[in-house]
């Protein structure tokens, strides 16, 4: 039976069914498989960049914990600030893929105004480095103002490139 199926008789009309089936399968992959793969891909990118941003937030929280509660852990602020500067260097690559299919508050401007986005992340890195330097140099009087400067860099970037709270996926 199988031999007949694979017959090479050139005079027989060509059986189009396998071709049609194949095309349908490719089409189905195109309609179902590819988008699903894309969505999964987007989710992975979103998850990663949110991990980077959460790490920055956690270090900011650590700095806040030390200062607002008067903990005798001044030196730790240098490490937190250095970690923020390090993570700031990861932001550009974390957002290099335009991934928008998923739970994200990233605004399209991130990929439309790439220079401005890079400038904003640089501003954060520089502010974090300045804070780390103040601690390293023992310039304690500058810690408070530099925390504020770092905070402003976070705020100005979020204002431009992150959805406002009312539109956040967290509030739906």
């Amino acid at each position: 039976m199988s031999l007949r199926i694979v017959s090479t008789d050139k005079n027989r009309p060509m059986n189009r069914r396998p071709w049609i089936t194949g095309l349908l399968l490719i089409g189905a992959w195109g309609f179902l498989g590819a988008p699903t793969a894309q969505a999964a891909d987007d989710e992975a990118w979103i998850q990663y960049r949110q991990s980077v941003m959460s790490a920055i937030g956690a270090d900011m929280a650590g700095i806040g914990d030390i200062l607002k509660n008067g903990l005798p852990l001044t030196k730790n602020i240098e490490f937190h600030a250095t970690a923020i500067a390090t993570n700031a260097r990861l932001v550009a690559s974390a957002f290099s893929q335009r991934a928008e299919n998923g739970q994200t508050d990233a605004l399209p401007d991130i990929w439309q105004k790439t220079d401005a986005f890079a400038e904003a992340t640089d501003e954060m890195r520089e502010a974090a480095e300045q804070l780390a330097a103040a601690v390293a140099e023992g310039n304690d009087a500058q810690i408070g103002p530099r925390v504020k400067t770092l905070g402003k860099s976070c705020g100005s970037c979020h204002k431009t490139f992150r959805k406002p709270k009312k539109d956040s996926y967290k509030n739906k």
Binding site: A58, A61, G64, G155
Partner: peptide, 11 residues
């Protein structure tokens, strides 16, 4: 500062 306990800022 505008920073919440989780380190996020205010908008």
């Amino acid at each position: 500062t505008g920073f919440k306990p989780d380190g996020d800022d205010t908008q």
